[in-house]
C-alpha cells in the first residue's frame, strides 16, 4: 500500500522565480513525481503561516513554500520576511511535537528547472517514506 502512496504536496510558489522554474522544468520535459499541487503567489512573503497550517490540517501530506533566492526577490525584501516567518512556524511545530518535516522552505530561481524537479523528487521521496499525513483522518480539529 505504501508503494501506491503518492503524497499530495501543497506548493506555494512565487510567481517570479519558483513558479517560472516549475514552468521551465515542464517545457524542458524534466520528469518529476506528480505530487505537487502548485499555488502561484505573487511573492513567497504573501504566504501567511496560516495558509501552511491550514493546508497541513486539511490533510496535505506536506507543504512547500518556495521563492527567489535571498537577494533576488522581485520586491527586494519579501523572501527575507518569508524566511523569518517560516522559522517561527517551524519552531512552533517542533515545540508542539508536530511533524515539522512535512514543511519545507526552498529557494528555486526561474532558471533552475532541474533544481525544481530535484527538490520535488527529493521531497516526495521523503514524504513517501513518512506515509500519509495522519491529521487528515482527525475529526476533532
Amino acid at each position: 500500500m505504501e508503494e501506491d502512496f503518492m503524497p499530495r504536496i501543497i506548493g506555494f510558489l512565487c510567481k517570479w522565480c519558483t513558479y517560472a522554474g516549475a514552468d521551465l522544468a515542464g517545457v524542458s520535459r524534466i520528469q518529476y513525481p506528480p505530487s505537487i499541487l502548485p499555488i502561484r503567489v505573487m511573492c513567497s512573503s504573501r504566504v501567511d503561516p496560516l495558509f501552511v497550517i491550514s493546508s497541513f490540517l486539511r490533510g496535505a501530506d506536506a507543504v512547500l513554500v518556495a521563492g527567489c533566492h535571498p537577494g533576488d526577490c522581485h520586491y527586494q525584501r519579501g523572501n527575507y520576511y518569508t524566511r523569518r516567518r517560516y522559522a517561527v512556524l517551524r519552531k512552533i511545530f517542533e515545540e508542539l511535537g508536530l511533524e515539522a518535516d512535512r514543511l519545507r522552505l526552498s529557494w528555486i530561481s526561474a532558471s533552475e528547472g532541474r533544481r525544481f524537479a530535484d527538490v520535488i523528487t527529493d521531497y516526495t521521496e521523503r514524504i513517501k517514506k513518512k506515509g500519509p499525513n495522519p491529521v487528515k483522518k482527525e475529526v476533532f480539529l
Partner: peptide, 28 residues
Amino acid sequence: EELKKRGGVRIPPNTIFYHLGRLTHVGI
C-alpha cells in the same frame, strides 16, 4: 469534502487551527 475525508467534522470547525494560528501571530 471534509466529511468525506474524515467521516466526521467538528462544528464549528478550526479549533486547533485557531490556536496554532494565534501562536504564529502573537507568539513572537
